[in-house]
């Protein structure tokens, strides 16, 4: 464990708790893409299948359990409890356009052709594009609530910090995982224009609105 990965994990935890809190407090999931949340749920379930078989540390197990639980709770709030506030007209990104190619790629490019490894690879690839429906929804509505933009900033920062963690581990531990690194870079690049908008607008107290 290194500081970059720890801060990254905490930023990730903050992001998903922020989103859950926003939906619960405002009793509304307006502006939140349910499709992205379903894909994140899929990401955690397929990645943490080893939750009970492969004990690494208390921290690792606890965080995995929290991520899965919060993801399921968020999906429940969006599609059941506050279903009436779900903006399905703007959440129109076709998930199958992401899940099918990612599933195919996981079969073709992986470290080991075993079920667990392919599911882990699928999870890594899917996570890199899972935010697209959310970013697409914001581009359609032309704006995002401030709390939602904080959620996205924390979520985007987590993987950017993981890239720094991978550089650190490469030089100090001789560890590198090309699949995770490439997917992590793609994931972070997808946030770039949002990061620009966030820094130039939200940090100056303005609402996040895309140039019409």
């Amino acid at each position: 464990m290194n500081i970059f990965r720890l801060v990254g994990d905490l930023s990730h935890l903050l992001a998903i708790l922020l989103l859950l809190w926003k939906i619960w407090k405002t009793r509304s999931c307006a502006g939140v893409s349910g499709k992205s949340q379903i894909m994140f749920g899929l990401v955690y379930i397929t990645r943490y299948l080893d939750l009970f078989t492969n004990f690494i540390s208390i921290y690792n197990t606890t965080m995995k359990a929290i991520f899965i639980a919060v993801a399921i709770a968020t999906i429940y709030l969006i599609y059941f409890k506050f279903k009436a506030t779900y903006d399905s007209n703007h959440d129109t990104f076709r998930m199958e356009f992401l899940i099918v190619p990612v599933g195919g790629l996981a079969f073709l490019v992986n470290h080991d052709f075993t079920a667990l490894e392919i599911l882990w690879t699928f999870s890594i690839y899917l996570e890199s594009v899972a935010i697209l429906p959310q970013l697409f929804m914001i581009s359609k509505t032309g704006e995002a609530e401030t709390i939602t933009s904080h959620y996205l900033f924390a979520l985007g920062s987590y993987r950017a910090l993981y890239i720094v963690n991978w550089v650190y581990r490469y030089y100090f531990e001789g560890f590198f995982d090309l699949i995770a690194i490439v997917a992590g870079c793609v994931q972070t690049i997808l946030y770039c224009d949002f990061f620009y908008l966030y820094v130039t607008k939200v940090m100056h107290g303005k609402k996040l609105s895309l140039p019409a």
Binding site: K64, D112, F175, I179
Partner: peptide, 10 residues
């Protein structure tokens, strides 16, 4: 250099 393998990351 060790590739992939250790899934100690979240």
């Amino acid at each position: 250099l060790q590739k992939g393998a250790t899934k100690d990351e979240l």
